[in-house]
Amino acid sequence: MKTMQASARPAAQAWLAVVVMAASPLLASAGDLSATYRGKPVPFGQGQAHTEVRTDAAGKAVAVSIVFSEQALAGLPGATMAPAYLLRMPAKGPRTVVDHVVINWEAVGHPPPKVYDVPHFDFHFYLVKRAETMKVHFNSDAESADPSQQPPTELLPAGYILPPGTAVPKMGVHAINPQAAEFQQPPFTATLIYGYHNKKQTFIEPMVSLAFLQSKPVFSAPVARPARYSKSGSYPAGYRVSYRPDSQSYEVALTELQ
């Protein structure tokens, strides 16, 4: 028995060395808290859509996304309907300033003419509760120019204005950048809008044309940031619209949260 134990010891030691070497990369990355948290998928077109929150190695949220399958662009309703798809945030993972997301499909676009009057999606990342947005009411779309809706200057990014004609019930008023590319040289592809109600920020809205999505883009751009925000937290310094060939899906993301 002693002889057998002695001969077995080197083999056991070698086996242990292999296990330790194999485990060391896992141990080295044990402190890496980077992850992707996914919200519950909902039907969208002939496909599905869900939210995602991505974290860095320290576990901090760095991006909030809407991800939808390629099939979502098929079977969308026509101009007689303007559906809104409600997406909840992931149940797990870090909280962000985004409370929920609503995708609005605009089959024939909306004003102003010759700018946003093409089929496109409005991706609303709401900073307030759903119940609050459902109470938003206007008597006219021109109310966006009313002094009661004009936010303090420090809540508007440089160059953005809040013109008449952008007040929408159950949403808010929409601030645009008249120097954005679509106002200089159409066609409109992708842009970013800020939303307000009663003088406070209530949503951040990338708008993306159907034609641009169908081109399967890999697009990113900086986000103009205001001097301050109505709600404390981390806000995007960039946004991204991209096609994921590996999963045949699209992503519209608010990135570089800081």
Rank of each mutant, 00 (worst) to 15 (best):
K2I: 12
L16V: 05
A17Q: 12
V18H: 10
L26Q: 11
L27F: 15
L33T: 09
A35R: 14
A35D: 15
G39A: 04
P43I: 01
Q46V: 03
T55S: 09
T55V: 04
D56K: 08
G59I: 07
G59D: 07
V64E: 07
I66N: 09
A72D: 06
L73A: 08
A74P: 00
A74E: 15
M81N: 12
L87T: 01
A91S: 13
I103L: 15
A107C: 08
A107R: 07
P111R: 03
P112L: 05
Y116G: 00
F125C: 03
Y126I: 08
L127H: 08
K129V: 02
K129N: 12
K135G: 01
K135W: 05
H137Q: 12
F138I: 06
F138K: 02
F138W: 01
S140M: 00
E143K: 01
P151C: 03
L156E: 03
L156F: 04
G165Y: 07
T166Q: 01
V168I: 14
V168L: 12
G172I: 03
V173G: 02
H174T: 06
N177G: 02
E182L: 02
Q185R: 14
P186C: 08
F188H: 09
T189Y: 03
T189C: 07
I193W: 00
Y196H: 03
N198C: 04
K199G: 05
M207D: 01
L213M: 12
K216Q: 13
P217Q: 10
V223P: 08
P226S: 07
A227D: 13
Y229V: 11
A237I: 00
G238P: 02
E251K: 06
T255Q: 13
E256N: 14
E256I: 04
E256Q: 15
L257A: 04
L257E: 02
